[in-house]
Simulated scan of single mutants.
Amino acid sequence: MSTALVTGGSRGIGRAVAVRFAQAGYDVAFCYSKDEKGARETADLIRAAGKEPLVYRADVSDEKSVREMMESVFSLEILVNNAGVALYKEIAETTLEEWKDLFSVNVEGAFLCTRYAAEKMKKRGGGSIVNVASVWGETGGSCEAAYSASKAALIGFTKAAAKELAPCGIRVNCVSAGIVHTDMNAHLNRDELEDFLSQIPVKRMGTCEEIAESVLFLAQSRYITGEILRVNGGLLV
């Protein structure tokens, strides 16, 4: 049996990733922080795909919470570091506490999960880690300095971890997602959304399912590591 663990699986990209891995035949575990209703809905979708999920309420920024979750996941082959939070504010309005809170989830959460997952993967002879970043981590997003910086850090972490863990049989890759139809983009008004779409060559937002397909591809590709796969409709080429 091979298990895929997805963080932030109660909605959006995380939910789509968890369901896609179940459809591909993996045993699936996922965690969520607050959205219990969403977690139940994800679990039902995984069951509909023929798998019984392991569901954890875990704060990825808390080491004790991550350690306890990892200790109870068996046959871990794939980790998807998807849990993340966004912040749409000008730099002058962003508090240090908000900056730290965002980094604690988006960066420290990925670090903690990778640290504990890698130890389990080493014992089983290898595995795959896929981090979910953003195009803003590559280009920077206006009024999203904290979010952009955290995703840039995640991209750098991906490259470093890939080099370090490759000799252990562990591959580490990253999906750099473009503008995707999720709750994170709910702050955009009609004019802002149309402006964004005008900059995308394919003239539409991406879907969570398209990101999930890319995550599965990287997880299963045996000769790819340290890669930043851009899934952005041509927004950045």
Rank of each mutant, 00 (worst) to 15 (best):
L154P: 08
N173W: 09
R57P: 00
S176E: 12
K203M: 10
K100L: 14
D44W: 05
G127E: 07
S150F: 07
C208P: 08
V66Y: 11
H181A: 15
C208R: 07
K51Y: 03
A16H: 04
R171F: 11
R11G: 09
C174S: 14
S214M: 04
V107K: 03
E209F: 02
T225A: 07
T114Y: 05
N189H: 10
I155K: 09
G141V: 03
A186P: 00
L165R: 10
S148G: 08
Q199H: 14
R20V: 02
L235Y: 15
Y32P: 04
D195T: 15
G12A: 06
Y147D: 02
N232S: 08
D191N: 10
G125V: 13
D191P: 00
V180K: 01
L188V: 08
P201I: 07
V135Y: 13
V231K: 00
K34C: 01
E41Q: 11
G84P: 10
S128W: 09
I179N: 08
E209R: 11
N131F: 09
S61I: 03
V231D: 00
I224T: 15
T42F: 01
V85D: 08
I129E: 06
E97T: 12
K89Y: 09
C168D: 15
E164S: 06
E52I: 10
V175L: 12
D101G: 07
T139M: 14
C143Q: 13
A39D: 04
R124K: 14
M205N: 02
F196V: 15
Y88K: 06
R124G: 01
S104F: 10
R115C: 02
P53Q: 01
F157G: 07
G140Q: 07
E93V: 01
G14C: 04
S150M: 06
K122D: 04
I46E: 02
H181I: 01
T207C: 04
V60R: 04
S150W: 08
S150A: 13
S134W: 11
A39G: 02
I155C: 07
L235F: 15
L102F: 13
A186F: 09
W136R: 01
C31N: 13
D27I: 06
G12I: 03
D183H: 13
G126R: 13
Q220G: 12
G156L: 07
V17M: 00
K34P: 00
G206R: 05
F157I: 08
D191V: 12
S65I: 04
L235A: 13
A18M: 01
T3I: 06
A146V: 13
M205W: 11
K64T: 14
W136H: 05
Y32N: 02
V202W: 09
S176N: 08
G109I: 09
I200R: 05
G38R: 03
I13G: 01
I179C: 09
K159P: 12
